[in-house]
């Protein structure tokens, strides 16, 4: 599977915010509810948390799911199997919302 963002979705990667969240995580804070990517879909705003943003940014229609898992796995403290399962579930969610398709 090569997930591809729906071109109708407007989005922005909030890099400064992401840096602040990473620093908060280092201090032991729970940042799972912190948004790093903002999406606007049909006039409604949504946010993706840190890992959601990591996945979303790689949904370019050219990157295989396995490569996405590998890239993210190299940066985060998580077992490959758990990460792959989470990425798959997240992408199913995004597909059901119509934000991502399989290129």
């Amino acid at each position: 599977m090569k997930p591809k963002r729906n071109p109708d979705v407007i989005w922005r990667h909030e890099q400064r915010r992401e840096q602040q969240l990473l620093e908060a995580a280092e201090r032991g804070e729970d940042i799972s509810e912190g948004g790093t990517v903002i999406l606007v879909v049909n006039g409604t705003m949504h946010q993706l948390n840190l890992l959601g943003g990591e996945i979303w940014r790689r949904c370019d229609g050219e990157t295989e799911l396995a490569a996405i898992v590998q890239e993210i796995g190299a940066e985060y403290e998580v077992a490959a199997e758990e990460l792959e399962q989470d990425v798959r579930e997240f992408l199913v969610d995004l597909q059901q919302r119509g934000w991502v398709t399989d290129a």
């Binding site: 890992l51 990591e54 990425v87």
Partner: peptide
């Protein structure tokens, strides 16, 4: 290595 938290859509609201 960065700490891991599951990916999710965290909020929605009208612009």
């Amino acid at each position: 290595m960065k700490k891991y938290a599951k990916p999710r859509v965290i909020s929605s609201g009208n612009v």
